[in-house]
């Protein structure tokens, strides 16, 4: 008991100007239910250093990465007058979702430098392919990013981290309706100049819930039984429709 009181006293004695670097997210889990059309989350926290206190650029970078999903990029070629898939490159560790936001001081060039230096999100910018000797590999890498951006799963532009006062920051992230399920990582970096001064990582879970989850699990865990139930449901519906139509 005495030890706890001491800890509390020590915590209270910490000077207010040097705030703690604390980050949280508005929801720890996102449930995909029947009416799911996407979700918007807020990542917020306090930066340890004062915003705009020193000459050097200071700010926060937020990176959200989805589970790694093996993905194959296919390229179409014209054969006998028909466009067909011909050749492809597999990316065994392509993240399913990538989203990056930064405060005003770190947009475009400086942000890319920081990202590269600390290998933040580098794997999504240049996924490591299984076959490294493929011709025009970079076009496949670009295609992966481009297709994912079109599907809304990779951020096409950097989001904005907004500062409210000197320490408090927040940013909103939108997950589209086709967001893959799994464990996501939220990484937040406090940056001064080109140096990361504080960093935290936390998890976010996106999962199916309710009827959607039950149906999906049933289809995958008991595929044969699921097929039989699907047939039975259709048989009953068809029979019922016929019976109603005969009455009418």
């Amino acid at each position: 008991m005495r030890a706890l009181v001491t800890v509390l006293l020590l915590a209270a004695a910490t000077p207010a100007s040097a705030a703690q670097f604390v980050v949280d997210v508005s929801e720890r889990t996102v449930a995909i239910t029947a009416g799911f059309t996407g979700a918007e989350l807020v990542v917020f926290g306090t930066a340890a250093e004062q915003q705009g206190s020193a000459a050097e650029e200071h700010g926060v970078i937020v990176v959200i990465r989805g589970p790694e999903q093996p993905t194959t990029v296919r390229r179409k070629e014209r054969n006998f007058g028909v466009w067909a898939n011909h050749g492809g490159v597999a990316f065994p560790e392509a993240p399913a979702f990538v989203w990056v936001a930064a405060s005003e001081a770190f947009v475009e060039q400086p942000l890319r430098e920081v990202l590269d230096r600390y290998k933040i999100g580098q794997d999504f910018l240049a996924p490591e392919p299984a076959a490294a000797d493929v011709e025009a590999l970079d076009t496949f890498q670009e295609a992966l990013v481009r297709r994912k951006q079109i599907n809304g799963l990779y951020s096409a532009a950097f989001g904005h981290v907004e500062f409210l006062g000197e320490h408090l920051f927040r940013t909103g992230v939108v997950f589209p309706a086709n967001v893959p399920v799994g464990s996501y990582r939220i990484e937040v970096f406090e940056v001064r100049g080109a140096n990361v001064v504080n960093a935290t990582a936390s998890a976010l879970h996106i999962r199916k819930a309710g009827l959607e989850a039950a149906v999906f699990r049933f289809a995958h865990d008991f595929p044969i039984l699921h097929g039989l139930v699907a047939i039975l449901l259709a048989l009953m519906a068809g029979w019922l429709a016929g019976a109603v139509a005969r009455r009418a």
Binding site: T71, T72, V73, K76, V82, A90, A130, L144, K148
Partner: peptide, 17 residues
């Protein structure tokens, strides 16, 4: 659709070859 050049020659497929 088969004979005209598609807008994007590339497509994604989940999984590895």
């Amino acid at each position: 659709d088969l004979v005209t050049r598609p807008d994007d020659l590339f497509s994604l497929q989940p999984g590895i070859l």
